[in-house]
Design a protein around this nucleic acid. Structure first.
Lengths: 208, 208
DNA sequence: TTCATTACAGACCAACTAGTCTGTTTGTAA
DNA sequence: TTACAAACAGACTAGTTGGTCTGTAATGAA
């Protein structure tokens, strides 16, 4: 188990550094030199593992951001039988938790790339689209189960609702990134809660 | 009225071309050369009117996008006494109207810049923040008037609601830009309508 | 042990691009 | 009419950056 050379780890280190660069500066602002600085590697290493700047960016989405979406939005939801409680807690955890500073200052990595690159490169757009669909369909399944268990009103179209919830989340992070104030955060939070509550069965909804 | 030289018009042409460039490629993807191509002007002209690439981008926001926000989202609202009808119609007009193709493919110019540049440059962030506040406060005033005229429930916090509506709009354009499908558009539309309806006075809301 | 292949190091290149600078023409006030 | 300032044209520069290419050390199979 000599660690003098570990190509897999080298590759992952490059991807992680590339993610950091993209998250900070966007894809167009990302510099190959900076990735090398962060990792201590040289161009020989990077261009051995990846064909181009675009290639490593694709890998960042396919491997790194995909896992991020699962770890952040999909897996934690399984802890809750009530999907609305789940979404609420997960959002709170992000807004107040570990990723607070980054998430409010730098926004959502996926949303950043969506805005910057969707219209410029079809490869980016499709990957972003797939990741969003992964996220939305996971929420959709959660809502569907919640519906069957009486947490969600039977009249709710879960596909529509899950799409709209993700739209709300992206929109709120977008506003927050630009405004950077507590008031906006509060308004987004209240709005989200109000919308989620509107998905409850009418009988429950009436309760205070 | 000799039009051999018209510095004001020259300046505006440069700003307009710069907007097109930024809208297509983002600020970091915008090329000075391309602005000159689009206008037929030379570097002497551009750097006579603007100090730098950043300077013309600021001018685009201060002069061009600011007017765009007013023309698109603020002025048309005055045609409607009912703010919910106003927002609905204005959104429909954009989604189905003149700017359809651009808006769905390229997204919202303000949102694009917000995602790309808010965290990278404080000058950008403040300008974006100001434009968003302009937009939100205009909606807030419309909702407030609507409240006084009985179109909105008296319990609604109009500041919260206007902020959240803008968040929804930005989130929906974001999703649309990445997904490019009709289904997402429908879901966003249904969700927006549902949220707007929840702002109605309870008596009206109950009606089918 | 041998040797082909993989995994890098690091110098080098070529293209692109924001910005400068000098020169020239147009407008305008005196 | 003159003279000065404003409004451009367009060649040039210097810095940046993605990517290449050659060399070298490690790895693993035969």
């Amino acid at each position: 188990m000599s660690l003098v050379r570990d190509p897999d780890q080298t590759r992952n280190r490059l991807i992680e550094a590339a993610f950091d660069e993209i998250y900070e500066n966007g894809f167009q602002g990302m510099r190959v030199e900076e990735i090398l600085k962060r990792t201590g590697l040289k161009k020989g290493a990077l261009y051995h593992h990846f064909a181009s700047k675009l290639d490593i960016a694709y890998a960042v989405m396919d491997e790194y951001i995909a896992e991020m979406v699962k770890d952040t939005w999909i897996k934690p939801m399984s802890d809750y039988k009530d999907p609305i409680e789940g979404i609420t807690k997960v959002v709170l955890n992000i807004a107040r938790g570990y990723g607070e500073e980054d998430f409010i200052k730098k926004g959502c990595p996926l949303n950043n790339l969506a805005q910057e690159m969707s219209a410029l490169d079809e490869g980016f757009r499709q990957r972003i689209h797939n990741l969003l669909q992964l996220w939305i369909s996971a929420f959709g399944q959660n809502l569907q189960q919640g519906k069957e268990n009486g947490y969600i009103d039977s009249s709710v179209d879960t596909e529509v609702a899950s799409t709209f919830i993700v739209a709300i989340l992206e929109g709120c992070t977008s506003l927050l990134k630009a405004s950077q104030d507590e008031k906006t955060l509060q308004s987004c939070w209240i709005g989200l809660e109000a919308y989620l509550k509107s998905l409850r069965p009418v009988s429950i909804q009436a309760k205070p």
